[in-house]
Amino acid sequence: MELGKVVELLGGTVVVSKKDGAFDITAVCTTDMMSDVLRFARRGELLVTSLNQPQVIRTAEIADIPVVVVVLGKKIGKEMIEMAEKMSITLLSTSLPMFTVCGMLYAKGLKSCVNGR
């Protein structure tokens, strides 16, 4: 799924856009615990989280996650934006709750980051 389609589907706002941002998103990791991202997410996935801390961007960078979606219209502070710009992470915001975001993306056929069950 192209990034533009994700933004459209979620009625989202692009807060920070990575310059060479041609993505094909196939899998999603949904969590607020950063070790969960580090443990289970694979390269190139989309992270959906309700956490609006700069550490989310750092985690995305370490784990090669190119796109982060912050849900429920949570305020995204200056530090988080600056870190996303510096680390070239695309940062989206949506007013939808996590449940709806997951439901909509799952219905579009996106997979889960965990396949080791």
């Binding site: 615990m33 070790s35 969960d36 801390q53 550490q55």
Partner: peptide
Amino acid sequence: VREMGWGAGMGLPNIRK
């Protein structure tokens, strides 16, 4: 710490892995 997104007890296992 958990409210900051850490401390779920995955750190050391993650390092070893």
